[in-house]
Amino acid sequence: MSYDKHILWVCTAALVTGWVFTNDDGCSSGTVMRHSCNWTCMHLTLQWPGSFCIGLTNKTVCKIPESVQNWTIHGLWPMRTGHCCDCWPIFHSHLQEIEADLTQLWPSFIKGKHFFYFWKNEWIKHGTCAGCEETMGSPFLYFQAAVKLRKLFDIDNLLQSSRIKTSCEVSYKHDDIRSVLTPLLGQNYDLQCVTDSKGREAWIQLKIHLFRNQTIGCPKQEQEQKFDRLSWFNSTGHPCPKNTTIFYVPINYENPHEPCN
């Protein structure tokens, strides 16, 4: 066995068993990875393209492809402590079978960046932890699982049939949105908003809580609460406030960072 193949085997074995390993194993320079398989729940995070660019500091990098008209996937994120494995590689060829679905349902909104680099980053950051579960135990299976979940939770048709439509004039109460989502999701989700230049709260993300086996639900254990607080802190958005109305803004392809101006 070559040295490179040996290192890959060591890293993958450590990932699957939850071993602790350092850069002495050749896996990640200067990084200690702990218990990357020690998780029980995950978030399927969906994002609304119409609001995505509002939260970006650099307004010139954002572009919404005109083929994108619905809610897209931001990520499928195990709620874990510690670092995932940097040395479980992913190649473009791994995703060719589902690339059409990924292009439509999991696109990047950053100019000049091929979608694959977004997918690769999500795999390294989150997928390699999800790979501890057999049903997501490869790059293909992980992304296939996310696509199936996105299709299962048909948020677009649910909102439209409930007369919650995109608008720059009409806003919705927090409870009005939840009353539509709760029959499908129970209480197992979070609404995330961004604030636009006029102080309006714009709905940007929906985080659906899932068990490890991809069924809906998630117990609020201590480590998951810590991860959840960290994920909010590191995000451009925040929990949608309950004391003001929320805008579900339309997609503005020509001026995506100011969709209502």
Rank of each mutant, 00 (worst) to 15 (best):
184 L>N: 09
209 H>S: 12
66 E>Y: 13
199 G>T: 07
58 N>L: 09
116 F>T: 11
145 A>M: 10
190 D>I: 00
66 E>N: 10
58 N>S: 12
179 S>C: 14
200 R>K: 15
103 T>R: 12
243 N>Q: 14
126 H>V: 08
31 T>M: 01
165 K>T: 12
208 I>S: 02
155 I>E: 02
90 I>A: 01
80 R>M: 08
57 T>S: 11
162 S>K: 10
203 W>K: 07
238 H>L: 07
103 T>C: 06
100 A>C: 10
167 S>L: 07
106 W>P: 02
230 L>N: 03
37 C>V: 00
98 I>V: 12
157 N>A: 05
149 L>P: 00
150 R>P: 06
242 K>R: 15
74 H>Y: 05
174 H>L: 11
144 Q>P: 01
195 T>V: 14
197 S>W: 09
132 C>L: 04
147 V>N: 04
150 R>E: 06
127 G>S: 06
251 I>C: 13
24 D>M: 05
238 H>D: 03
50 G>P: 02
157 N>K: 07
185 L>K: 04
129 C>N: 02
34 R>L: 04
84 C>E: 02
160 Q>I: 03
157 N>I: 00
116 F>R: 12
117 Y>P: 12
186 G>D: 03
241 P>N: 15
13 A>F: 08
255 N>A: 06
41 C>E: 08
16 V>E: 01
144 Q>K: 09
38 N>Y: 00
229 R>A: 13
180 V>P: 04
83 H>V: 06
171 S>C: 15
133 E>L: 11
79 M>L: 04
98 I>A: 08
169 E>W: 07
217 G>I: 05
259 P>W: 04
118 F>Q: 14
68 V>R: 04
167 S>Q: 12
250 P>L: 10
37 C>Q: 00
90 I>W: 03
230 L>H: 01
34 R>Y: 02
190 D>F: 02
114 H>Y: 15
96 Q>E: 14
36 S>F: 03
78 P>C: 01
94 H>C: 14
61 V>T: 09
147 V>Y: 01
50 G>A: 06
228 D>A: 03
237 G>P: 00
111 K>C: 11
100 A>I: 10
12 T>Y: 08
215 T>D: 06
171 S>N: 15
73 I>D: 01
171 S>R: 14
103 T>F: 08
223 Q>H: 10
22 T>Y: 03
256 P>V: 05
13 A>K: 08
178 R>V: 13
259 P>R: 09
191 L>W: 02
180 V>S: 04
187 Q>K: 09
193 C>T: 05
226 K>N: 01
251 I>G: 13
32 V>D: 02
158 L>T: 00
176 D>L: 10
178 R>S: 14
91 F>I: 15
101 D>F: 08
201 E>L: 11
68 V>I: 15
192 Q>R: 13
27 C>W: 02
184 L>Y: 11
246 I>A: 05
85 C>M: 10
260 C>T: 09
1 M>D: 09
61 V>K: 12
111 K>M: 10
179 S>A: 15
184 L>M: 15
163 R>F: 09
65 P>L: 07
34 R>F: 00
211 F>H: 14
247 F>E: 13
86 D>N: 10
232 W>A: 05
36 S>R: 07
259 P>T: 05
67 S>K: 09
82 G>L: 02
41 C>T: 13
51 S>C: 13
208 I>T: 06
44 L>D: 01
76 L>W: 00
103 T>S: 13
118 F>A: 14
114 H>W: 15
